[in-house]
Design a binder for these strands. Structure first.
Lengths: 244, 244
DNA sequence: CGCTATTTTGACAGCCGTCAATGAACGTGG
DNA sequence: CCACGTTCATTGACGGCTGTCAAAATAGCG
């Protein structure tokens, strides 16, 4: 059966990067070769490791090459809010181009591989290419739009709607990366993660997922998730777009 | 008694704009004069009018010159989530530089005055000034950060924390605009607005506000709000930054 | 001064959180 | 390959924060 996601070997050159199409830097001619020059190395982490802790100084810019990670904020009393689930090809932090210290932390969900770029060199490179600068602006705008959709989810949607939307959204994002096998895909998130993404407790997430399963809308087994009834799931997700 | 905010007369030239310091375009030498060239007019609306409806084509870019407004999303069944409370000096929509159609609507809270700029001319102008382009990127990054703080509020904070934080946040923003009179400031938001900002019902907002008032933390009268006990309010707001 | 919008209050329900215990799954090492 | 500890999922009982509904009181507006 199709291997959906298996630990990928880091390519020697960005030109052969299998997740290149999903990355920040687009496909303008010549860009890839120049980006490759800026790659200063790669790093690997095991599942559950902290990749960056809020407030630390940022020396390098990273791209997630393989595996899943989360970007999150912690409150002083331990409550956690996950801001984004990071998938292969995602830039881990565009804002680090502007800020040397960031207001969130990053943690690996699965084992991950990162591509590392020198921050100062990357800034210089981008600023020397106004078209690229504009493109990054466009990516930030997209980020804002996605955040505003999530804000609406947390403010105005029920737990069932939120869970259904998260599943559909991840399915879309993985589809764009060719990381799905029909309606089945890798799903390494723990229920605690889902809760922290959606503003729910893991106990309640468990209840909701069980109901979706009992209603034959989804199926879960060994870190994989299958959408059994996409229309039904969308009906539960309620109106409004499901952003990719 | 200090007049806190009174209907301002639109200046003939941006150079004398009293909210200029809070606007998007900064203070680099010569910029203001050039921006003034791009201003194609002004518009006024009465309270509660819709300024922009989700999905409409955007021809002009607006800056809020006077009054309060809200940027919000509606769900098909009528639920509403307010994304931002717009104050004088705010750009109404930076994303419109990149997208011709926007995923939210804008409505006046009080009577408002807007400054209007031609969209195409503004895009051309910004793209011809890489330093300005970079500055806008920086503003977008800030927007992302604020949204992520609000996401954490909605996902992980109680109603009391949310209300206290909203009040403190508005106080900070108005302070930066010199629009406060000590700890007193104009507060034209209805409790329905507050609920739609914070993901609560207006009924519950009423209960929370009353408790804050009974505890002598705040006082409200005739569209004004006074912070009586800032430390107490911050204690209720809980840990974590209160973004300006 | 009459009308509308808004706030407040009470009763009640329910979604979701908390706490705790059980069991399954997983990872690691002998 | 099995043993064992840790992490994770599930379930039940219970509570409370917040929503819903409705009505009355107030404030604001033309």
């Amino acid at each position: 059966m199709g291997i959906i996601r298996k630990a990928l070997t880091l390519p020697g050159h960005c030109r052969s990067c299998p997740v290149g199409a999903a990355t920040a830097y687009g496909d303008a001619p010549g860009i890839v070769a120049q980006i490759a020059q800026l790659r200063s190395g790669t790093r690997q982490f095991r599942a559950r490791r902290t990749l960056y802790r809020e407030g630390e100084s940022v020396r390098h810019i990273y791209t997630l090459f393989d595996g899943w990670a989360i970007r999150f904020k912690m409150l002083p009393d331990g409550r956690r809010q996950i801001l984004t689930v990071l998938l292969p090809g995602d830039a881990i932090s565009l804002p680090s181009l502007w800020a040397e210290r960031l207001d969130f932390s990053v943690q690996a969900v699965t084992a991950v591989s990162l591509c590392e770029f020198d921050r100062a060199a990357m800034i210089e490179f981008i600023r020397s290419r106004p078209d690229l600068e504009w493109r990054i602006g466009s990516m930030l705008v997209r980020e804002v739009d996605l955040l505003e959709q999530r804000l609406t989810d947390l403010g105005r949607r029920t737990a069932h709607e939120r869970v259904a939307r998260l599943i559909l959204r991840l399915y879309e994002r993985l589809t764009m990366r060719n990381a799905t096998d029909g309606l089945t895909f890798d799903f390494p998130l723990r229920q605690q993660h889902i809760g922290d993404v959606l503003g729910l407790t893991s106990v309640h997430v468990s209840r909701v997922l069980r109901q979706l399963q009992t209603a034959r809308l989804i199926d879960r087994s060994s870190q994989k998730l299958t959408i059994l009834n996409q229309d039904g799931l969308k009906a539960i997700a309620g109106g409004g777009d499901i952003p990719g």
